[in-house]
Design a binder for these strands. Structure first.
Length: 1029
RNA sequence: GGGCGGUUAGCUCAGCUGGUAGAGCGCUUCGUUUACACCGAAGAUGUCGGGGGUUCGAAUCCCUCACCGCCCA
């Protein structure tokens, strides 16, 4: 059989993948020969995702670790899976429905829509899984998990426990009060009309404007406004009847609740506590707001006075909360100016009362958007507000000078002051639209209550974060953690297991007769004024039956006959009110209490996808069931991930696992960099510099891509990747392929035991194999993938191919042929074994081609030998031979000797060691240096000199040599050696060095110097001879 | 504004706990010698960002400045 000239990656990869899978090679525990487990949880890619270079990098590193452990006999589990990606998936499915001109989701309803999502998932949801398989990822695919598995409505094949785990955790944390519902300012995505967490917001600097407006003091009051420079000298003094406010968002002025200044700001001290007027809205209803003090305003920024719109800005929200300023919401879910709530006049009146300090209660119904602005987009509203204020003369203006180009006349004009300046604006990372801070009811995790164990675990080293610099990032975020908004106004996701019922207000119920029963009059009174405005009761449980029980307890205290009402589930609050009215009306007619219903409805929101992926380590192992896998593989060993999701995912998994099962989710977190393009730029679709890993696999093979990525995975650095790099490693694949091909042509077979050869060359290479095995294990154990890859590359190419294979060629004809075949077979086997974690396909193929194997290489036994295989004498001898060959080659090339010419090798001087090395390896030297058998002699005319440790040689290269050129060559070498030697002598001559340095270092330095001096002597001798001729 | 990282050969980057610079690509010259031209041989190129300090010795540790990048506010 003759092997092909190169590895056909495309054909082999598919075949080998199929074989691995058919054999269950990646199953948990496959090839296990010891008790220790090794578990890796894949960072679950989005179900909508397709493989990008970041995935390729991330999964290559995981696969290297996993294959390495599996080969070492660990009971290994690499758990794969996907997350359900709430927003992204809903977006994909909605877009597809629109493309097909189907009715939209609101038209078909929640249930039908979810069916479509599941259908989409079953059709296209495993794209990335198949792509990961192409990369060679050795996950236990039979265990592929999904964060929505087991959810109500999940089709066959999507059974699983993840839903149970998510709901169970929600209920537990709810019961402990760690999860709560509240009205708070959240990031609102007006495109998807949902809340998002602050991590899903991208702050970008965009060109913006800063307007300056005058808020007139109430009742025409005035004050002395004084500005001073740093030394306290007055630079401006004027009487003002207004306070100047700078804003980038004039439309929010409508919702202002106060103007705040810094308590230490002397300029405004005279007017603190007074009222001023918001310069917008109908004249007759102009609102007044108080001027308050707070630490938030920066006296040096703008005018130093800040308008406070608590419902539309996070900083303002804080000020409003601290100072009891009402929060007036101005926008709806689409970020348009509100149309609901009370009429403007009434709203303004309530707000004015509030400004005077009256308690006006809940202001969610107060709509301070003037009629003419209601329903407008926020930007249109902004335009109108600016126009109105400017028209009224309340914009701060500045004198503007213009010179008429024709007449040269100066023209002075006052113009509104508008600064052009970059502002930071929040964008939704999925939708790309400007995020609006919005006051809404949301569910939160009180992260402050579960953060401590996550901090302690890393501080105490129970979980190690590598590289270490990321610990700081982790601590910094967790130490300043904010409540986590976990509700999303979406349909695709785990629906919050909380039901609401109308609070029938037992305390407000008036029992006219005092008979404990409800008569018709009382009942209708309840219905008429109570229920629409009444509050709600809520219960949380994993199953509706449990919820039903609790509501039953709730209504048990109601007057009869209401307490026997049947509890039924309806869509929402409105449906509940309708049904309640209907059922009471029925009862009135029939007087049949079985017609009484108590409707409850479920919270429509779903949980943040990250809430479910936060449970990934336990959820994938079967929790809340106490499964064998959970007992065996948890806590997991390593999490390999990018730094971009330390907050999103790593920190949250730490908190959640510790909160739920009381243990860390993983012992080590290895954080890798972000793959960039060749120039170091972030890859992005808009820049068009995205590299598709599948294209690279098509072009160069998965092994080449993996080897490239591994070689770039220096800890803490971002790999910069271009096709050129991959090409280089494709060449490496070909190189080892051809070395094998050569071996095969010479009758070498693998699969044999480690030989104990006699020939120095064979003894030497076995020692080199041992060295690389030690180095590779050390590198992998320290997550230095680049060192492992570079080391193996240099070993295979630089040692095995460049030297060992070349040395072996003449040996195949001699008395050592047998042991050389055995040695080469064994050496190549070791190469396949050690390269397999990084380059699984080509090595598996070579393994198959080169021997009769009992197991596939994926289950090969990782070598364990060490330094005991290094033969120091063989090492010394072969290195001497290599140095000699290099010396001869270099001299030949520099002196222009034709490459094909075979020269005599004259030994002019040689010590015992050199002589024996020469004798033992003469055929190798002759062949590789292209010289004839060495003969003793003297240097003479037409010869060039070559020095080796303990020996000098002369090479006759022809009748006449260029003496000048040869002198120059030797002098150059001499100069280099002299320079090095000089440095070493200086160092050794320094008594402080010999006193302070380690003995080992001193010894090393002496040896180096001795070798250099030997060199120098030989070069000088050669130069002297040259001069004598 | 706070924090982190980077600045090493023409390019992209290694260089772990200080012992005096390496790889790949590219470049130059040569080469069809029984695996490989996706190859082989030889070669050139570096005040290791600037300045200061610690040390017998600094690309490596400390301080400082400059520029670039990232994260958070």
């Amino acid at each position: 059989m003759t092997m092909d000239k190169s590895f056909d990656a495309k054909a082999a990869e598919a075949r080998i993948s199929a074989e691995w899978e058919a054999q269950g090679a990646f199953a948990a525990g496959a090839n296990a020969s010891r008790r220790e487990t090794f578990t890796v949880m894949i960072p679950p890619p989005n179900v909508t995702g397709s493989l990008h270079i970041g995935h390729a990098f991330n999964n290559t590193l995981q696969d290297i670790l996993v294959r390495w452990h599996r080969m070492r006999g660990f009971d290994t589990l690499w758990q794969p899976g996907q997350d359900h990606a709430g927003i992204a998936t809903q977006m994909v499915v909605e877009r597809r429905m629109a493309e097909r001109q189907e009715p939209n989701r609101r038209e078909i309803g929640r249930e039908a829509f979810l069916e479509k999502v599941w259908a989409w998932k079953q059709e296209s949801g495993d794209t990335i899984i198949n792509q990961l398989k192409r990369l060679g990822a050795s996950c236990d695919w039979s265990r592929n998990a999904f964060t929505m598995s087991g959810a109500p409505g999940a089709p066959a094949g999507e059974e699983g426990n993840f839903h149970d785990a998510v709901i169970r955790v929600f209920v537990e944390l709810y019961d402990k009060g760690i999860i709560y519902r509240g009205k708070r300012l959240v990031n609102w995505d007006p495109h998807f009309e949902t809340a998002i967490s602050d991590l899903e917001v991208e702050n970008r600097e965009v060109p913006g404007h800063m307007w300056h407006f005058k808020y007139p003091l109430a009742g025409g009051e005035t004050y002395e406004y004084v500005e001073r420079d740093a030394d306290g000298n007055v630079t401006l003094r004027e009487t003002r009847d207004y306070i100047s406010i700078a804003t980038t968002r004039p439309e929010t002025m409508l919702g202002d609740g106060a103007v705040a200044v810094h308590p230490g700001d002397a300029r405004y001290a005279p007017i603190v506590g007074k009222l001023c007027e918001i310069p917008v809205g109908p004249k007759e209803h102009r609102r007044l707001i108080p001027i308050i003090t707070d630490d938030y305003p920066d006296p040096d920024f703008g005018s130093g006075a800040v308008k406070i719109t608590g419902a539309h800005d996070f900083n303002d929200y804080g000020v409003a909360m601290r100072n009891g300023i009402p929060l007036y919401a101005l926008m709806d879910g689409k970020a348009r100016m509100r149309e609901d709530g009370l009429p403007y006049a009434e709203s303004a009146e309530i707000a004015t009362r509030a400004a005077r300090g009256e308690d006006v209660g809940d202001v969610s119904n107060v709509n301070l958007v003037p009629d003419e602005l209601r329903g407008l987009d926020r930007l249109e509203a902004r335009k109108r507000v600016i126009e109105a204020i400017t028209a009224e003369g309340l914009a701060v203006t500045r004198l503007h000078k213009e010179i008429d180009p024709e007449t040269g006349a100066e023209h002075l004009e006052r113009r509104p002051l508008v600064d052009q300046k970059p502002i930071m604006q929040p964008f939704g990372d999925r939708s790309g639209v400007v995020i609006e801070p919005m006051l809404t009811d949301q569910w939160f995790v009180d992260t402050a209550r579960i953060v401590q164990p996550a901090l302690d675990a890393v501080r105490e080293g129970r979980t190690e974060i590598l590289p270490e610099q990321h610990r700081k990032v982790y601590f910094n975020w967790l130490e300043n953690i904010e409540p986590w908004t976990i509700s999303r106004q979406l349909w695709w996701g785990h629906q919050i297991p909380v039901w609401y019922g109308l609070d029938l207000g037992i305390e407000n119920f008036t029992d006219d007769e005092g008979d404990g029963a409800l008569d018709e009059v009382e009942l209708f009174r309840l219905l008429a004024d109570g229920i629409v405005h009444t509050g709600e009761r809520q219960h949380c449980a994993a199953h509706f039956d449990d919820v039903r029980k609790r509501f039953r307890d709730d209504i048990a205290g109601l007057p009869q006959p209401l307490e026997v009402s049947r509890i039924v589930e309806v869509a929402d609050r409105e449906a509940a009110i309708d049904m309640l009215a209907q059922s009471w009306a029925d009862y009135n007619l029939s007087q049949d209490p079985t017609h009484l219903l108590y409707p409850v409805w479920r919270d429509p929101d779903v949980l943040d996808t990250w809430f479910s992926s936060g449970l990934w380590p336990i959820g994938t192992l079967g929790w809340p069931e106490n499964t064998e896998e959970l007992r065996k593989y948890f806590p997991t060993d390593v999490l390999v991930t990018g730094f971009d999701i330390i907050f999103f995912w790593v920190a949250r998994m730490m908190m959640m696992q510790l909160a739920v099962v009381g243990d860390v989710p993983f012992r080590t977190v290895y954080v890798h960099g972000l793959v960039r393009d060749e120039k170091g730029a972030k890859m992005s679709k808009s820049k068009g510099n995205v590299i598709d890993p599948l294209v690279l696999i098509d072009d160069f093979g998965a092994d080449a891509l993996r080897m490239t990525l591994a070689s770039m995975a220096a800890m803490g650095r971002d790999p910069k990747l271009g096709p050129r790099h991959v090409e280089g490693f494709r060449n490496f694949v070909t190189k080892i392929w051809n070395a094998t091909r050569f071996a095969e042509m010479n009758g070498v077979r693998g699969g044999g035991p480690r030989p104990e050869p006699a020939h120095t060359v064979n003894r030497w290479i076995i020692g080199e194999v041992a060295r690389i095995r030690i180095a590779t294990d050390e590198a992998l154990a320290a997550y230095r993938f680049n060192d492992a890859a570079a080391g193996l590359y240099a070993f295979v190419w630089g040692k095995v191919c460049d030297w060992y294979v070349e040395f072996a060629k003449p040996l195949f004809d001699g008395s050592h042929a047998g042991e050389t075949r055995a040695t080469m077979g064994w050496v190549l086997d070791q190469c396949y074994l050690m390269l397999h974690p990084i380059m699984p396909f080509v090595t598996e193929e070579l393994w198959r081609l080169t021997g009769d194997r009992t197991k596939m290489l994926v289950h090969g036994d990782w070598p364990a030998y060490g330094a005991e295989l290094i033969d120091a004498a063989a090492d010394r001898e072969i290195n001497w031979v290599i140095a000699l060959i290099e010396g001869v080659r270099s001299a030949r090339a520099q002196m222009g000797v034709p490459a094909g010419a075979k020269l005599d090798l004259v030994v002019t001087e040689a010590d015992v060691a050199a002589r024996s090395a020469l004798a033992a390896n003469a055929p190798l030297i002759e062949r590789l240096a292209r010289v004839n058998a060495p003969v003793d002699g003297r240097a003479g005319k037409g010869m060039i000199a070559v020095a080796a440790q303990g020996a000098s040689f002369a090479l006759p290269i022809g009748e006449v040599i260029d003496v000048a050129a040869e002198t120059a060559r030797l002098q150059k070498a001499l100069a280099r050696s002299e320079k090095d030697a000089e440095g070493l002598r200086k160092r050794l001559g320094n008594p402080k060095f010999t006193e302070n340095a380690e003995a080992e270092v001193i010894e090393e330095t002496r040896d180096k110097l001795a070798a250099l001096e030997d060199d120098i002597a030989r070069l000088n001798a050669a130069l002297a001879q040259l001069a004598a001729m």
